[in-house]
């Protein structure tokens, strides 16, 4: 039996300023092809957890094995090679506003492009074709040469997805991908993630605010509270008692349909 695809062991993150403990001794593992949803209140450590996996945030303690390699010990050069295989999309999309949609999508290839070509902005013909194909896939082929700041929120997030697709990722980290979007757009974005998961076999780790979205798209759910794991199981297992444990006594469940 092979090891799980992603293993997080005793992960702890303490932010130096103010000694804030974001993650406490967190351990779990993810199999290849899972759609794992991370839920929890704001400030429970969801974003930090996702960022520790591709080391946008340096973990304080603990290990993270990706395909059997401990990424917490990699040199920065080797970490970059690992990051190429990990796509990431963000709550605020984090596009380059002044660049076109295709310009943003092409940055997804930067990990595979030699530095001098990257600096001059000379992406290969193959990459350009791939960028157009990925924009086609997220339904934005006609917006390819529109500046990113001219796009709507849903369109911007789809550009973000196309950028992640350029990396041909094995793992996709989605940090509250739909929190800044309206319910209808949220579903369209989530469906692209689901499609990546099912058709391309990309393992997805998504943090979500709405439990209804988590139930609908996740194959498994973990819940964080104050940086600790309070739930790990199938979506159906979160009943009212569990819900109150995770979100506190006063919480009411809000549905997104």
């Amino acid at each position: 039996m092979a090891n799980p695809y992603l293993v997080v062991e005793n992960l702890t993150k303490v932010y130096e300023r103010g000694q804030v403990v974001a993650l406490r001794d967190l351990s779990f593992s993810v199999e290849k092809g899972e759609f794992l949803v991370v839920i929890g209140l704001s400030g429970s450590g969801k974003s930090t957890l996702l960022r520790c996996i591709n080391r946008l945030v340096e973990p304080t303690k603990g290990k993270i094995y990706l395909d059997g390699v401990d990424v917490t010990r990699l040199s920065s050069a080797r970490m970059r090679r690992v990051r190429r295989r990990i796509g990431m999309i963000f709550q605020q999309f984090n596009l380059i506003d002044r660049s076109t949609a295709i310009g943003n999508v092409l940055t997804g290839r930067l990990g595979y492009t030699p530095a001098w070509r990257a600096l001059l902005g000379w992406f290969s013909k193959a990459d350009r074709d791939r960028a157009l194909a990925n924009l086609e896939r997220v339904g934005l082929r006609d917006k390819a040469y529109v500046r990113a700041d001219q796009l709507s929120g849903g369109q911007r997030q789809r550009v973000g997805i196309a950028r992640a697709l350029m990396q041909e990722p094995e793992l996709l980290l989605a940090d509250e991908p739909v929190s800044a979007l309206d319910p209808a757009t949220s579903h369209s974005v989530m469906q692209y993630l689901e499609q990546m998961n099912r058709e391309d076999g990309v393992t997805v780790l998504a943090s979500l605010h709405f439990l209804s979205l988590a139930r609908r798209y996740g194959t498994r759910i973990i819940a964080l509270k104050d940086g600790q794991l309070v739930f790990d199981g199938p979506p159906g297992a979160i009943d009212d008692t569990r819900f109150k444990e995770i979100y506190g006594e006063e919480a009411e469940e809000v549905e997104v349909r």
Binding site: R84, Q92, I96, R109, L110, L119
Partner: peptide
């Protein structure tokens, strides 16, 4: 935000500067 996003693609330091920082400061 863009610095995080470009770093996450596996880009090197100079590429991050070129794609995430410079576009924000040129004008």
């Amino acid at each position: 935000g863009p610095i995080e996003a470009i770093t996450a693609t596996g880009a090197g330091r100079l590429a991050v500067l070129r794609y995430a920082v410079i576009p924000q400061i040129v004008n």
